[in-house]
Design a protein around this nucleic acid. Sequence first.
DNA 1: TTCACTCATCGATCTGTGTCACTGACTACA
DNA 2: TGTAGTCAGTGACACAGATCGATGAGTGAA
Lengths: 226, 226
Amino acid sequence: MRTVAEKSADILPVPQFVDPVGFASLDQTIRAIRAQEALFFEGDPSTNLYEVVEGIFRSSRIYSDGRRQIVTFAFPGDLVGFAHGEYYRFDCYALTAGKVRPIPRHALLTAVKSRPALAEKLLAAAADQISSMHDLSMILCRKSALERVASFLCAFRDKTGAADCLRLPMTRSEIADYLGLTIETVSRNITKLRQRRIIELLEPSSIRILDLDRLRRIAQEDASIH
Amino acid sequence: MRTVAEKSADILPVPQFVDPVGFASLDQTIRAIRAQEALFFEGDPSTNLYEVVEGIFRSSRIYSDGRRQIVTFAFPGDLVGFAHGEYYRFDCYALTAGKVRPIPRHALLTAVKSRPALAEKLLAAAADQISSMHDLSMILCRKSALERVASFLCAFRDKTGAADCLRLPMTRSEIADYLGLTIETVSRNITKLRQRRIIELLEPSSIRILDLDRLRRIAQEDASIH
DNA sequence: TTCACTCATCGATCTGTGTCACTGACTACA
DNA sequence: TGTAGTCAGTGACACAGATCGATGAGTGAA
């Protein structure tokens, strides 16, 4: 019998690789990463940044008392390790098997000097990251649990360019640590959306959006103008 | 008789102007801004970004139902309007009278091409912004009200390079909208810190830190390695 | 002076979300 | 098979912080 993951693969889109920053010309090395493998840890010297080529990654940080926050989910085309100074300030793990293109920091600075177009693209990538951090802090600052879950689903849909059937590679616990909630609250609010027939669960990690308009309305998308 | 603000000026440091990104060479125009004046609004075409030369600014966003979030407080040397695309996605107001250096977006892109060192500095500024957004979302994601208030005070102290006597140019309501709390909760937790003799209030907007170590411990600074 | 207004603070009460405990589905492995 | 472990879902209850209401200080205008 086939696994759940194989079944889902039939109906769920695979995030496509793009190269918005144009690193392909900079370095052809590509590194494969297994699911759950760490790309780097908080405190490691930040020798590389990475362009995600395939798969989904998460950046997180853990308090001494065990509280965890997940700061970003990174998709193909995104950069991880970008914001850091001399040392990484976050851990980075692959949620799924994937591929990354490591970009040595020193090579990047050299390349920027000789190729101004690259700088422009990098700045755009940085602006994107700032923008999505703004959205996250908006969620964390003022939204209710139901609004957070709805926002998360909408954003995930938009990011992956998926149709209305989402395969979530992250656990409830990872969603909770991203949205500033507990697993129980995430679970209860997914149930609430299900009961209102806004979404449907094929299995816990496969969600079909039945009513995108209502989902967006709950997510308070009207607050932003984009 | 002198006003409260004048009295505070004797003992409280004025944030110093710095020019980390090196825009002074790009454009010598400086624009003065009155307290409470808006620099730009959400939805305006983002023709300029601004380097703060003097004063303190805030970027905020308002939901249709009236909920507000303040995303950043900007100090001298910081850039505002940087993260935005073609249109500003946030309002920006001066909390105090101040000065800014407007940088036309098109001029910036041209300058980046001819002066790679500028790109490098810009990228560093962007990385800084991402970093401080990470810190904010850490606060909003996992910290208690008391921890948030303590974090805010520590960060304000570090940002302004102040000694242990802070003049807060923002109202309780603005602090609340930054920390994801209500005014009442901010007020109650300031009282709590006062009762524990960790801070002292000269007046509502002038706070003296009596025990920085305990304040930092409450703020959970140990969670980060920087 | 009086009045109107804003801001900070505090008490009483309410409520949304966290905490704790339990159950069932699924997977891996002996 | 059986057993152990992880993950999702759900109910009962607790509690941190929101909400509502009131007070006092400061400020500006008439």
